[in-house]
Design a protein around this nucleic acid. Structure first.
Length: 659
RNA sequence: CGGGGAGUAGCGCAGCCAGGCAGCGCGCCUGCUUUGGGAGCAGGAGGCCGGGGGUUCAAAUCCCCCCUCCCCGACCA
């Protein structure tokens, strides 16, 4: 991992090139720096605060947004000189950015330490044999686990995308007995992922800073306790950083395990989405989210129970007769030549064209000349976890959801199941050939008529009526949940939120410990058992991006106190023309530092406008101005970047700005 | 991986269609003036026009190949 993370206190630099002499007061006494006691001081950071004269700081702000910036937060981080892109998805943390990163890390350390975890550091590079052992090397190169592989002299190595294997063998070799358990370890480490598409600046990158913790317990109940403790610590971290977070049900993906939660920060970037019930506590990532059946009066309880009890949110009770009475009297279905209409959009366009343009011999009832996607039945072929081909029916205006463990049909599947005609799948006649047809709740209240696939190349059928022309084997939540869909537990309308996944916690169980050598310990009765593990990841660099995204205005960044690179931005105005002003500003700088504040001192000989603009851009919470206007009256001016509140305090007691 | 767009000075861009001296703004350097919200004047430095090949008397410009970056999709912490 990069050495920059181990930030040792930097010695005060007194460069001979410094343009002016340092103030006579010592910048730092030999004794330990005073602990912050001011209201705005949350804690100390491990970063030395000595390099704080802007004339000595690597700071080159940009007036224009960089061309490749996708979001305001990203643009501001680049303009304000916090980060710089080296290649797609690869960023350098410049001095200011590193300070923010270090503050976030420190909050994470404090909370995890307080939760009884121990920090360690595993290597970023690991031998591929470890990944062969867990079986995950088979996932390399796939999107699920896009690891970088390195061919070295000593064999093949993996630039770690995550560390379950490494931690399992590491801890396994140290722990032999139940007496040594439970234990939870964590590290803050660079992770590497060969992303298909890095984007949103620091939000999705190839190299990222992450804190990952791993718990080891003797049994499942112990794992649950460790998990709950880790989740509680994570919530405290978000609370301190000032981000609103919602833990949601999610999918475990390539990490594995049963229970897992994503920590979603509501954000306008909306890289991810989740749904939340305003009534009960149901919250889920959009990928894992299920909806209940839209409830008529009195049906809510039943729908909720069904979903809660159902494995994939399905039930097998017979369909209710929700069909309008006239449906059964509707004209019988007709097959129609629909060349090339393999998508809902093209199908709708086909039928919405003028009647003469529909191809010869097509008899379309007048009622169908104007159809919408909602009038079509979208049928998607999927393979269940048991490798059973099924047809999933959803309304044409909604996306099919792939239940966990299932997958969409691939080329080979279509080749193996000639019943399924890609692009023209429909429910009619398939049940008779042994294909199970499942449907989304939202289809239950309408029997038809539907436009749907004819299971024949370039053909669809019109006027299809459920329970007359086909039947549904199972009802469930098979459509991607939309805003306002009923909660699967209580039936209340779900709210859809755009968000960023900031952390992810997993109950791994024995997924890794049962496969890795040394992944077991001796029980009290002398028998050998695998560890019950949990793993907990929180994206440090991603948090920095989210904070910037959620804390800025048109002028620049607005760092929350807890993670701001500095607490005070001291600006001298006109000091190059006034020795009195310069001395006053220097003295204020020293006083604030002696009071324990982290101060960035803009001592550059630049016009006031530039210094004010840069100050707004950097977003340090408190701005303090020492200029001739105030100095003549013996005062300095302060202003809160966030609230705009301002005032004056005497130059003889600048520490007053800290309370 | 599919579709679209773009690579010209540190940053943002024009020039390309219609081939003919490498440009503009910001930033940077020097000097003078100015001085509390991105100052003015004068002078200056800085480019393999992404790379390679081709066409041509002549290529930033036209053609071919490659690389990189960005966007949409797929996928994903």
């Amino acid at each position: 991992m990069p050495s920059f993370k181990r930030v040792a206190p930097i010695q005060t630099r007194r460069s001979p090139r410094s343009r002016r002499s340092e103030p006579s007061t010592p910048e730092r006494s030999a004794s330990a720096p005073p602990r912050l006691t001011t209201a705005c001081a949350v804690h100390e950071t491990p970063v030395a605060c000595d390099l704080v004269r802007t004339t000595r700081l690597l700071l080159h702000t940009l007036r224009d947004d960089p061309a490749d910036a996708e979001t305001q937060g990203h643009a501001l981080l680049v303009r304000a000189c916090f980060v710089r892109r080296l290649a797609s998805g690869i960023y350098t943390y410049l001095p200011l950015g590193l300070r923010v990163l270090a503050k976030i890390e420190q909050i994470v350390r404090e909370e995890l330490d307080a939760a009884g975890m121990q920090e360690m550091l595993m290597p970023a590079l690991s031998p591929i044999e470890l990944w062969d052992e867990s079986g995950r090397s088979a996932l390399f190169g796939q999107d699920a686990l896009p690891a970088f592989l390195i061919d070295g002299r000593g064999g093949r190595f993996v630039l770690g995308p995550t560390h379950e294997e490494v931690v399992t063998v590491t801890v396994g070799s140290q722990i032999d007995s139940y007496r040594q358990l439970p234990v939870t370890l964590y590290q803050i480490q660079s992770k590497f992922r060969d992303e298909a598409r890095p984007r949103f600046g620091l939000l999705r990158t190839r190299e990222l800073m992450m804190c990952d913790a791993y718990s080891f317990d003797v049994d499942a109940p112990g794992m649950h306790r460790s998990y709950d403790e880790a989740v509680a610590a994570y919530l405290r971290i978000f609370d301190r950083i000032g981000l609103t977070v919602t833990p949601v049900q999610a999918r475990s993906g390539a990490i594995g395990g049963d229970v897992n939660h994503e920590f979603m920060v509501t954000s306008v970037i909306g890289e991810d989405k989740f749904v939340k019930c305003p009534n009960c506590h149901y919250a889920s990532n959009i990928e894992a989210a299920e909806a209940g059946e839209a409830a008529e009066a009195g049906e809510a309880a039943e729908a909720g129970e069904a979903a809660e009890a159902g494995e994939v949110g399905s039930s097998t009770d017979p369909p209710k007769d929700g069909a309008p009475a006239h449906s059964l009297d509707a004209p019988s279905m007709k097959t129609c030549h629909t060349p090339g209409c393999t998508t809902i959009d093209s199908l709708v366009a086909f039928f919405t064209r003028s009647g003469t343009d529909r191809g010869a011999g097509v008899d379309v009832s007048p009622a169908l000349t104007e159809i919408t996607p909602a009038d079509t039945l979208k049928c998607v072929a999927m393979m269940t976890a048991q490798s059973e081909p099924v047809v999933v029916a959803v309304p044409g205006n909604r996306e099919a959801r792939v239940p966990e463990g299932w997958r969409l049909f691939q080329e080979a599947d279509f080749a193996d199941n000639e019943l399924f005609v890609r692009g023209f799948i429909g429910p009619v006649g398939l049940a008779e050939k042994g294909v199970r047809i499942v449907a989304d709740w939202s289809l239950r209240r309408r029997s038809g008529p539907w436009v749907t696939g004819a299971n024949r190349e370039d053909h669809h059928v019109l006027g299809v009526i459920r329970d007359r022309d086909f039947s549904i084997a199972e009802w469930g939540s098979y459509a991607t949940v939309q805003d306002g869909d009923p909660c699967p537990r209580c039936g209340s309308p779900l709210a859809l939120q755009s968000s960023v996944e900031a952390a992810h916690t997993f109950q791994l169980g024995t997924t890794y410990s049962s496969k890795m050598s040394g992944g077991s310990f001796l029980r009290e009765d002398g028998s050998r058992a695998p560890f019950y593990m949990g793993c907990y990841g929180i994206g440090i660099s991603r948090l920095m991006a989210v904070i910037a995204e959620e804390n800025h205005d048109e002028k620049g960044l607005l760092w929350p106190e807890a993670v701001a690179p500095f607490q005070v931005h001291l600006l001298s105005i006109g000091a190059e023309r006034s020795e009195e002003t310069r001395v006053a500003a220097d003295n204020v700088y020293v006083s604030l530092k002696d009071a324990g504040a982290q101060v960035l001192y803009d001592d550059r000989e630049l016009s006031a406008g530039i210094k004010f603009a840069d100050s707004d851009l950097l977003g340090i919470p408190m701005r303090v101005v020492v200029g001739k206007k105030g100095v003549s009256r013996g005062v300095l001016e302060w202003r809160s970047r966030r609230t705009g509140l301002s005032g004056e305090v005497g130059l003889d007691a600048p520490g007053a700005v800290l309370v």
